[in-house]
Design a protein around this nucleic acid. Structure first.
Length: 274
DNA sequence: CACGAGACCTGTTCGC
DNA sequence: TGCGAACAGGTCTCGT
């Protein structure tokens, strides 16, 4: 499900609390349970409970699509993958069918990872860099400049869309925001990375940041039954708009497959590379 | 190195 | 109505 803007929205929601639930930061973990073993990447479920209980949640951060809960001693890393969601609920509520792991807090609330497809993963470690270390730059960081992007693009010989979705190239983009950014930048998803001019790179850089910022401002995108509260789905330019008019030129949006992912683009605004 | 296919999973939607 | 196929916001591993 979630890409950078959705994870950022969940982070904000959890750290400040919402209308119906208290903030997570400052609470202490009183109990933990793993309901689907493979959800836990490390350590073993038994170790996990023993190790996590008693630790306080100091801060919540985001790196790429990872949520990082900084605890008293360790770091809890959460990746929601395709269908994961985090929910705060009273600890007396019955365990929902798709809950895979939960933490009980010392205030009567429970943080649950709900994940129908079971792809989500959780790590408890005192060395978060072993998991996060391979990630590429944060697209919204000051350090991520058009020149930095140009250098990275030129160093590779790859199709633009799969490269942008490669988390070691750039952290946080997924299928939606990549399609949206490429459309805004007027670049075809199959363009080869080292064929971009500096000017095209600047346009791509600005588009990536604009689309991600818009996504965050709208609290992410809510599609289907997974993750609620976002509004960005109402502003998609091309994603899931096959056959509809391009917002720029009116040409029907086309859908194709690139790197085994559904890909949406405007054949007029985003001409195929030669 | 670059790329495609298959795996991991369940649920929804589409076409016949 | 029923049923199988296709598809879904992600990532890993393997083979070419």
């Amino acid at each position: 499900m979630p890409e950078l803007p959705e994870v950022e929205s969940i982070k904000n929601l959890l750290s400040t609390g919402g209308p119906d639930w208290p903030p997570l930061v400052g609470k202490t973990i009183a109990a933990a349970q793993v309901l689907w073993q493979r959800t836990l990447a490390t350590p073993t479920p038994k170790q996990f409970s023993r190790q996590v209980v008693g630790q306080a949640i100091k801060t919540i951060e985001r790196r790429g699509k990872f949520l990082t809960l900084v605890l008293s001693r360790d770091t809890l890393l959460i990746h929601l993958r395709m269908s994961g969601d985090l929910q705060m609920e009273p600890k007396m509520r019955p365990i929902a069918p798709h809950h895979r792991l939960f933490l009980e807090l010392d205030n009567g609330w429970r943080l649950a990872l709900n994940d129908p497809r079971k792809f989500g993963r959780v790590w408890l470690t005192d060395q978060p860099n072993t998991v996060l270390g391979k990630l590429g730059p944060e697209p919204l960081d000051d350090a991520f400049t058009p020149e930095a992007l140009y250098q990275r693009l030129q160093a590779r010989h790859r199709q633009l869309k799969p490269l942008l979705m490669d988390q070691s190239f750039l952290a946080g983009l997924g299928n939606i925001y990549t399609d949206e950014a490429l459309h805004l930048a007027c670049l075809h998803p199959l363009t080869l990375s080292n064929q971009l001019t500096l000017e095209q790179t600047e346009r791509l850089w600005a588009s990536l940041r604009a689309i991600l910022q818009e996504g965050i401002r709208l609290n992410g995108a809510s599609i289907d039954w997974v993750y609620r509260g976002g509004e960005f789905q109402n502003y998609f330019r091309v994603y899931q708009r096959t056959g509809e008019a391009c917002p720029t030129c009116g040409t029907p949006i086309q859908r194709t497959t690139v790197g085994q992912r559904g890909t949406h683009f405007c054949p007029t605004c985003q001409p195929a590379p030669t």
